[in-house]
Amino acid sequence: MYKIIFTGPVGAGKTTAIGAISETPPVATDVPCSDDTRAIKATTTVAMDYSYITLEDGTRVHLYGTPGQERFNFMWEILARDGIGLILLINRDHPNPLQQLDFYLNAFSEFITQTAVVIGLTKSDLQDNNDITTFQDHLYQRNQIFPVFDIDARSADDVKILVHALLAVLNQ
């Protein structure tokens, strides 16, 4: 079974990205926010997002999205089990996206070592300056060379690029 995990901070677009490429109505577990997340959005994922896509060759790829908040990190472990790779979404409109990048790369470091990761910088459509080299330099300093893409999580084509990039890395 091919299973890909979408993770990243609250509001990065994980639920949106899975919904954008999903072939069926996705399983979503969003509930009203009561914490400081409320300033960003009205609802938040508390268990997981789930859906699947079928590749040209008929292979079905299952997509699991994690909750963003650290208090749900038990779900990160459960969802990552048997996963073949990670799609890390980081929203560009966050005040400190590099810190977010570090946090999730560290939280999933074991999984990433065993599998692969691609990084999608979301909400690039809302940003004037889409300098991607800052992120690449940062990864280089961490001694980690991973594919990075600017995407709009609402666009199916953009999200598919991430999925295909991840599969390409895995097939190397």
Binding site: V31, A47, F72, F74
Partner: peptide, 8 residues
């Protein structure tokens, strides 16, 4: 957190 995940 676990309660909310399970119930959802």
């Amino acid at each position: 957190a676990m309660s909310s995940a399970l119930l959802a």
